[in-house]
Structures are given as structure tokens and as C-alpha cells.
């Protein structure tokens, strides 16, 4: 699915510029709260894009780390009185640690078994949330998060301030993934994706690299969860349901996993299209499914690859994948 080349992982590049432009214009084109939601889900999708695009690991369980980050953020903000910045750092760290620990078990299996393990852990997370209802609020969600927050002395409360926060967080995560992909570590991940056996034969500790990738992706999802909780002032139980894992996976595939920018494209497209379709038909998810089928069959590189194809056709060079 991914089609990266060493050239594709240059950092920063035209892709970086395009992402910055999209983030800059988005609040002028769509309602600010919707733009924030796009940025949050783009961050979550980035975790799938990293795993699937860079190392070839298909995860049906990124919602677990997103939910974990969201609930931890909710509890830290509400009960521990922690500031927003340390809370988000802790949510990211907690997502990394949880994913790393589970990753130790998951990378013992490959292919469909790995996928099933991610699915099983995600389900366990959901039922743990329900079982710990005194802490998590159960199916009512975690409520009463503080409404007024600040970050480095700047008040975070208005829709625009939240957008700046979520867009900034996405940009940081995006740059980190771009940097990671451009690094020797990223090259090893690519090698593992292309031929795991050969990478192992070359002396790379494939499992460790995979665990590291899973942990980093978990941290990014945890950050997205933390942002979602702070943005809503509430942790909806949906944040840890299996559906959220599916949703961000669909966003990743629609956007394309060949580039971290696909996460933003997928989130923008899915969020805006679902917004429009849900007004037309109650079963709008069926249309999303059709779209997904079309993309998988006819545009396996996702929407982002359209830009690359156009650039290659008219510009004579790749504008990055």
C-alpha cells in the first residue's frame, strides 16, 4: 500500500509546506470546532499511518491508546488539577508506555494474528472502561472536566484557541513522524515493511524496531485522545470503542499511508464528507464504505497519492509521497 522511496522521506519538504497551508486555511473554510476535530483525528490517524505506512503493521486497536489518553487526561485535569501541558505530555507518555508493553506481546505474531491481537486488546480496553465505571463514568462518559485551561500562560477556552492547540499538536506530531521516517530508524522500518525476513537476516532486531514503532504510534494516539478530552471538556465512551479504531483506520486508508500527510487528508475528507452525507442519509456509513472500496480498488495510495501522481505527470518529479 505504501510506496515510499528514500526521496519520499526528505524532511522538511513540499509536503510539510502543504500541510502547514492546509492547517492555516482550515478555520477560514469550515467551522472552527469542526477544524479542531479534523486536527485531532488527523493526529490519531497519524498513528495508523505511521504503523501501516512505515512498518507495514495493520492495527485495529489504536482507539485503545486514544481512549487511554483521553481518560487519563480527563482524570488528571479534573481530579489531579494538573495543567494542560503536563497532562498532554503524560497522556502521550502513557499511550507510548501502554502500546510499548502491549507491543511486546503483539509483535510475537505476524500478519492476521498481529491484527487480531490489536483487536482483542482494543476490546479489552472498552470493557475495562465499562467495568471501571466508578473511575471512567462507564457508558455516561467522564464529565466535569475544567472549562478554563491555559497553556504556557495563554488561555485555552475559545474555539479558535483550541484549534491553534490541536493544529499545533498535529503539526508537531506530523513533523516528528516525518523526521522519524527520514532517519536511519525510519529506513530500517521501511526495510522491515518491504522484507521482514531479509531485515532480520541483515542483523536488525526486527521485534525491537516493531515495538518501538508500536509505542511511538501509541503515544501519538494518546496525544490525540488527550486533545479530544480537553477539547470537549468530556470524555465520551466512544473514544475507547472499537468503532474509533475502525474510523481512524478508514481515515488513514482514504488519505493514504504512503505519507504522514495522508493522515490529514484522510481526516479532512472523512470528517467533511461524513458531515455532509449524514444530512442526506441516515445510513451514510454505507456510502463511506463504498468510498473505501473504491479507494482500495482504484487508488490504493489514497487521496494523497493523487497529488503525487499529478506532480509526477505535470512536474516531472515526485512531490513526495
Amino acid at each position: 500500500m505504501a510506496s515510499s522511496t528514500p526521496q519520499a522521506w526528505r524532511f522538511p519538504d513540499l509536503t510539510t509546506a502543504i500541510v502547514v497551508v492546509i492547517l492555516a486555511v482550515m478555520p477560514f473554510l469550515v467551522p472552527t470546532t469542526l477544524a479542531s476535530q479534523v486536527a485531532i483525528f488527523a493526529t490519531a490517524t497519524l498513528s495508523v499511518t505511521l504503523l501501516l505506512g512505515s512498518v507495514g503493521l495493520l492495527s485495529f486497536g489504536q482507539g485503545l491508546y486514544l481512549g487511554f489518553g483521553a481518560y487519563l487526561t480527563g482524570l488528571l485535569l479534573r481530579d489531579a488539577g494538573l495543567g494542560l501541558l503536563p497532562t498532554l505530555v503524560l497522556a502521550t507518555t502513557a499511550g507510548t508506555v501502554l502500546a510499548g508493553l502491549l507491543g511486546i506481546l503483539m509483535v510475537r505474531r505476524q500478519g492476521v494474528y498481529f491484527v487480531m491481537l490489536t483487536l482483542a486488546f482494543a476490546q479489552m480496553g472498552y470493557f475495562a472502561m465499562l467495568s471501571l465505571k466508578d473511575i471512567t463514568g462507564g457508558e455516561n462518559g467522564l464529565t466535569d472536566l475544567p472549562r478554563t485551561m491555559s497553556l504556557a500562560g495563554l488561555p485555552i477556552g475559545s474555539p479558535l484557541s483550541f484549534y491553534l492547540l490541536t493544529a499545533g499538536a498535529f503539526l508537531l506530531a506530523f513533523l516528528a513522524v516525518q523526521r522519524l521516517n527520514a532517519s536511519p530508524f525510519g529506513s530500517v522500518l521501511t526495510a522491515i515493511r518491504e522484507n521482514e525476513g531479509r531485515s532480520e537476516a541483515m542483523g536488525y532486531d526486527v521485534k525491537r524496531y516493531k515495538i518501538a514503532a508500536v509505542a511511538i504510534a501509541g503515544g501519538i494516539a494518546g496525544l490525540a485522545g488527550g486533545l479530544h478530552a480537553a477539547f470537549l471538556g468530556f470524555v465520551p465512551p466512544n473514544d475507547i470503542e472499537l468503532e474509533i479504531s475502525q474510523r481512524i483506520l478508514v481515515m488513514a486508508i482514504i488519505g493514504g499511508v504512503g505519507s504522514p500527510a495522508g493522515a490529514l487528508v484522510g481526516s479532512v475528507f472523512y470528517t467533511l464528507v461524513s458531515e455532509a452525507l449524514s444530512e442526506l442519509w441516515a445510513r451514510w456509513m454505507a456510502l463511506i464504505a463504498l468510498l473505501l472500496i473504491a479507494i482500495v480498488l482504484y487508488l490504493p495510495g489514497g487521496l494523497w497519492s493523487i497529488g503525487r501522481r499529478l506532480a509526477e505527470r505535470f512536474g516531472g518529479r515526485s512531490a513526495d509521497a
Binding site: 474555539p159 470537549l232 465520551p236 466512544n238 449524514s278
Partner: peptide
């Protein structure tokens, strides 16, 4: 406001109509 059965979406959309 169609919340699509999602409490998070409901909150976001209520935020939207109340602030905008």
C-alpha cells in the same frame, strides 16, 4: 443537530451552535 449517536459529536455541535 444530528449527533450521529455520538456523545462527543453532540457536545462539539452544541459548542458550535452556541459559540458561532
Amino acid at each position: 443537530i444530528d449527533d450521529r449517536g455520538d456523545a462527543g459529536e453532540a457536545v462539539r455541535r452544541v459548542q458550535e451552535v452556541m459559540t458561532q
